[in-house]
Design a protein around this nucleic acid. Structure first.
Lengths: 166, 166
DNA sequence: TTTGCGACGTTACACTATAACATCGCTTCC
DNA sequence: GGAAGCGATGTTATAGTGTAACGTCGCAAA
C-alpha cells in the first residue's frame, strides 16, 4: 500500500495532464481509512457510489449515479443512492453543490474545513479550495449582525484556465 | 408619492419591529421605476409575483407562489410563475437562493452588486448583505487559479439574533 | 433463540423546473 | 385596413430532483 498523497494541490482543470485513476484510487483509500477510524461501515454500495462520484472532477447528479449503478446490473431505486450520498456527506467524503444539485468528491476528507468551489461552466469540472480566509471575513460579518453561522455555501461559476483558452 | 427610502440598512430579523407593508410598497415602487428606466414591462402578473415574493423576508418557492396566485382566482400553470421569476431575476428585482430552491426580493435593485445571504434556519428569514469585500477576496483567489469568475453563490445558514434568543 | 439494529429494497409520491406549442393583443409597415 | 412580427401568457405534457413509509434481511449481542 503506497503512502496516501493528500489531494490538496491538485488542479482538476489540468485536463488530461493528470492520472485521474490515481485521484480515484487515493480517494477510495482515504475513505476506507476514514471509515475505519470512525467505526462506520463503507459498504459495497457506499463505496461504489463514492467511486462513481470520483469517476471525474465533474459534480454528478444523483440520477446520473443511478444510471451508472444500473450498468453494474443493480438497478437500485432513488432512495438507495440518496442514502449512500447522505452517508458520504455525513462522513465528509463528498460535498453537495447546491447550485448544480450535484455531488463531488471531497479533496480533504478528515480535515475540518469549509470549501469554496470554482465551477467551470464549459467543462463542468469543479475545484475545491480551502475557504478559511473567506470564512473568517464572513463569520465576522455575520457576527456583526448577530447571526450565528453554521453552514456555508460558497460556489463560483465561470471559466477555468483550460476552457478560457489561455 | 413619498420619497423612496433605500432598503439598505433594513434588518429583516427584527421581527415585528418593522412595518413590513412599507418594505413591500417601497420594493414595488422601486421596481416600477427600474422597469420604466429599462424600458421593460412590469405586467400585472410580474408585479403580483414580486408583491408575493415581498410578502415576507422569507425566501419563497415557486409553487408556494403558484398557490398564492390561485387565491386570486388565476390558477396559472408553473411556466407562468417561472417566467415571471425569470424576468424579475433578469431585472435584478429578486434573487434565487440556491440552497433553498427559493426566491427573495432584492434589497438593492438597480445597483450592480453581489450578495451574501444570511438565512435563519429557525424563522426562515433571509438578510441580504453587500458582498463586495468577500467578492474581492474570492476574485483574487480565483484569478490565482486562472479562473474567470462570472457568477457567485454566497449563502450562510445559521441562527439569527432573534432566534438565538439573544 | 430471541431481540435489536443498521443497511438496503420497494413502492409511492412530493416537489422543482422546463419543453413545446397555442393563443392573444399590440405595434409596425406596406 | 390588412398582414406580419413579436412579446406575453395559456396549456399540456413531461423531465429532473428528492423523500416518506414500510418491508426484508443479516448480523451481533443478550
Amino acid at each position: 500500500m503506497h503512502s496516501f498523497q493528500p489531494l490538496s494541490e491538485h488542479d482538476p482543470f489540468a485536463c488530461s495532464a493528470h492520472d485521474h485513476r490515481r485521484c480515484q484510487h487515493d480517494a477510495l483509500a482515504a475513505a476506507e481509512d476514514a471509515c475505519r477510524r470512525e467505526g462506520v461501515r463503507l459498504t459495497p454500495i457506499r463505496k461504489r457510489v463514492l467511486e462513481l462520484v470520483w469517476a471525474s472532477h465533474q459534480p454528478v447528479g444523483a440520477y446520473a449515479l443511478l444510471e451508472q449503478l444500473a450498468v453494474d446490473g443493480h438497478r437500485p431505486a432513488p432512495p438507495t443512492v440518496y442514502r449512500a450520498l447522505e452517508f458520504l456527506l455525513e462522513q465528509g467524503l463528498v460535498h453537495r453543490i447546491d447550485s448544480l444539485n450535484a455531488f463531488v468528491g471531497c479533496t480533504h476528507p478528515g480535515e475540518r474545513h469549509r470549501s469554496l468551489f470554482l465551477i467551470c461552466r464549459a467543462c463542468g469540472r469543479a475545484q475545491e479550495l480551502a475557504a478559511a480566509p473567506i470564512e473568517q471575513v464572513i463569520t465576522t460579518e455575520a457576527q456583526r449582525h448577530g447571526f450565528a453561522l453554521e453552514k456555508l455555501t460558497l460556489e463560483a461559476v465561470g471559466l477555468c484556465h483550460s476552457c478560457s483558452g489561455s
